[in-house]
């Protein structure tokens, strides 16, 4: 990455289907990934519901876009921060989330975890280090 690479964080705070925010965020991330910046996603508050596994919209006539999160690694978006407090407040654990990975080309496509479980305090520090934070 060149030295004018900027650090972009997408802050996701909404549940996936009640509003359009989650899907719009994902689309913007995928489009923005073409600019080869240092991109990370943060899942906070109801945003953690976006990556809950086992989503099946067959009976509600909406597009199930949860499989698209698995494509983020292909778009070189490999840092997905999940806030621990938000999970706990909702009775969720890491096991309730999809197993999202990316493949490291420099290490013979070794599969690595994309999700990083962090405390609010840790995430606040990561956020502080960003150039831009986009909110959805």
């Amino acid at each position: 990455m060149s030295e004018d690479t900027k650090k972009f964080m997408y802050l996701n705070r909404r549940a996936p289907y009640g509003t359009i925010y989650a899907w719009e965020s994902l689309e913007v991330v995928l489009i923005g990934a073409a600019f080869e910046q240092d991109v990370s996603l943060a899942f906070v508050d109801d945003g953690v519901y976006q990556i809950v596994k086992g989503q099946d919209t067959g009976e509600v006539d909406m597009k199930n876009f949860s499989p698209t999160y698995s494509a983020l690694g292909d778009y070189e978006v490999t840092k997905l921060y999940v806030e621990k407090e938000s999970l706990e407040e909702r009775g969720l654990t890491l096991d309730d989330l999809m197993h999202l990975t990316w493949e490291d080309e420099d290490e013979d496509w070794a599969e690595k975890d994309s999700i990083r479980l962090v405390s609010r305090e840790e995430l606040a520090k990561v956020m502080e280090g960003q150039d831009v934070v986009f909110s959805f």
């Binding site: 289907y17 809950v52 989503q55 099946d56 919209t57 949860s66």
Partner: peptide, 11 residues
């Protein structure tokens, strides 16, 4: 409502 739970991955 079951269908809304299923959509959201809630068992």
């Amino acid at each position: 409502l079951g269908p809304d739970m299923k959509a959201r991955g809630l068992s």
